[in-house]
Every structure is written in C-alpha cells, then in structure tokens.
Amino acid sequence: MEVLATQVSLLRVLFLRGLVPTLALVPIALALAVGVGLLGGMLRVMRIPVVDRLIWFYIYLMRGIPMLVILFLAYYALPTGNDPRVAATLALVACHGAYMIEIFRSGFEAVTKGQREAARALGMNFWQRMTLVILPQAVLVIVPAAVGQLIILVKDTALTSIIGYVEITRMGRNLMQTIMMPVPIFLYIAIYYFAVCHLLKLIANRLEHATRVRLGSTERAAPATARAAGGAR
C-alpha cells in the first residue's frame, strides 16, 4: 500500500512541479515562433533582396548551432535579467522560429502559380492575396509540418533545465536526490511527454481534416475523382 502511495505522490509532484512549468513555456514560445514563421515566411516569398538574404542567413545559423548552445547564449549574452524562463523562451523562439519560417515559406510556395495569378488579375493587393487566397490554402501544408515542429519544441523544453529552469526533467533529477528511484521517475516523465505530444498530434489531425473539408476535396489536385464519385452517387 505504501509503495502505491509513493508512486502516486511521485506522479503528482512531477505533474504539478514538473509538467505544469514545462507547459507554461510552450504557449508563449509557440505563439512567438509561429509569429516569426508567418512574418519571415511572408518576407521570404516577397523576395526583397537584402531582407531575404538576412533571413536566409538567420535560418542557416540556427540550423548549424545546437539548441543547448543557443540556450547558453540566450542566458548569458542576452539581457534577460538572469531569468531562466525568459532566456529559455527566447532560445526556443530563436531556434524554432527559424524552422517555422521555412515551413510557412514552403506552404506559401505550395499554392499554385495559377492561384496567385488569378488573385492578382482580380486587382488584389499583397495583403488581400495573402489572407484571402494563399494562407487559406497554405494551411494544409503548414499545419502538419508546424505541429511536427511544435512537438520538437515541447521536447526541447527538457534542455532548458541546463540554465536553471525547473521543468519536468529537472524536477526528476531533483527528486532523485531525495528518493533514489530513477526508473519509475523517468518512466513517468517519459509518459507525460508522450501524452502531451500525442495530444498535439491528435489536434493536428483534426485541424488537417477540417481544412481538407473546407477545401472541398480530399486531395487538392484531384477534382476529377471528386467529380466521378459525385456522379456515381
């Protein structure tokens, strides 16, 4: 009985003082990374000479530096007031924002040239083309890739313990100093991470399905099969 009680309290502590601070990092980091991705992706498809080169260089840099090093740099080099939470958020945004830019760019570029030309021929300005025509179609490409990136972001929060942010992985190590039960502790941590990522994946599938329905076909470029199915009914 006592064994079970220990396990339950372990799970409880890991949830409240581990998973909660882990998840506390995610919404802001995610929102900012998506913001960076949207803005950067739009700027890239506009192909403004110098700006495009700068964004490209930023992405190239982030791809070549380990997340852990970015975390240290954010903590020691940026004026974050030695607040590990701020430094952790900035580091996550810097790294994952770069990948998000490429995800948004590829989404925008997946919308066919004919669509962009039709929007232009109707006199739409850049903003109207983007919001009315390109973004609503690009989400089909963006959503699955962005959720994949979000899952990596969630897992990367484990690294933030290195600069002193107490999240679930750090909490596990702290607990080990009082209760020497590494296997259950890290097993529970693994289950928590997996549950969160699985939940995100489920939400992504829902979103993707809804988008496909809105686009009126299961496959973007196959109206012919939709027509045939309609005729058979």
């Binding site: 004919g114 669509q115 030309e117 039709a118 021929a121 609503p136 179609q137 686009l215």
Partner: peptide
C-alpha cells in the same frame, strides 16, 4: 488599379478551391 479594370479568364480556370 489597372488590373481592376481588366478582367482575365485563364485556360485552367484558377478558381479558388477553398
């Protein structure tokens, strides 16, 4: 502004699928 005054019909229709 000029394109507002010039309508265009494409070979591949290019309707907005969404």
């Amino acid at each position: 502004e000029a394109t507002e005054k010039i309508g265009m019909v494409f070979q591949n229709f290019n309707l907005f699928p969404h």
